[in-house]
């Protein structure tokens, strides 16, 4: 019961791990992605991605700049332009 989460920038693969939930700052509002999320694609505004390793854990905040997110059967992939 885990969501495979990948965060990549042109420079490197920042994260590739299994997490519980990720909250993504989409252009039209933040959205949380859990395991089994419907396939979607969204552009991202500059902001913070919150990564919840488990349901109860404190979120880990990653500040990213621009890009887009893709959710498919394999999990969530965020293609960011830069990671602060």
């Amino acid at each position: 019961m885990a969501l495979h989460f990948e965060l990549v920038t042109p420079e490197k693969l920042v994260r590739s791990q299994d997490v519980h939930m990720v909250v993504v700052p989409g252009t039209e509002g933040d959205f949380g992605v859990l395991q089994g999320h419907a396939a979607m694609m969204s552009t991202i505004r500059d902001g913070a991605v919150s990564v919840y390793a488990t349901a109860t854990a404190q979120p880990e905040i990653i500040t990213i700049k621009g890009g887009f997110a893709e959710v498919n059967a394999n999990g969530l992939t965020i293609l960011a332009e830069a990671v602060a």
Binding site: G26, T27, E28, A38, A39, M40, M41, S42, T43, F68, N72, A73
Partner: peptide, 18 residues
């Protein structure tokens, strides 16, 4: 045949930035 994908904003807008 692939599962329908939701686009936010629209496909065209995403494509425009992409």
């Amino acid at each position: 045949g692939a599962a329908p994908v939701e686009y936010e904003p629209s496909e065209e807008d995403i494509l425009m930035t992409l």
